[in-house]
């Protein structure tokens, strides 16, 4: 909550995925990245397919403030932090 608290203020992160192993891995990795880097964000998992289809057809996907920033893979911790902060 120090330097970057302003840019990250109350970010909204969504993990889109129907429940496959990769989707769970992405959810866990994202939560870890947020906790470790003190990012102020709410993480929700979206499993409803009609909701997912409104954003993308490739799962798992990472959505930050309504924008799809990454999909189809599980990035490393450092890449996740970059994706979320950008």
């Amino acid at each position: 909550m120090q330097l970057n608290s302003q840019i990250n203020f109350n970010m909204e992160i969504k993990i889109l995925g129907t429940g496959c192993p990769k989707c769970k891995a992405l959810e866990n990795a994202t939560r870890e990245a947020i906790a470790k880097n003190n990012i102020d964000a709410t993480v929700t998992k979206v499993e409803d397919i009609t909701e997912i289809m409104k954003l993308t057809m490739t799962t798992p996907a990472l959505v930050v403030d309504g924008k799809v920033v990454m999909k189809g893979r599980v990035p490393s911790q450092s890449e996740l932090v970059q994706l979320i902060k950008k």
Partner: peptide
Amino acid sequence: PWVYETLLANSDMDESR
């Protein structure tokens, strides 16, 4: 039938990422 009622993505990821 619900398949045909699904709305499709209009804000998909930018490929240049």
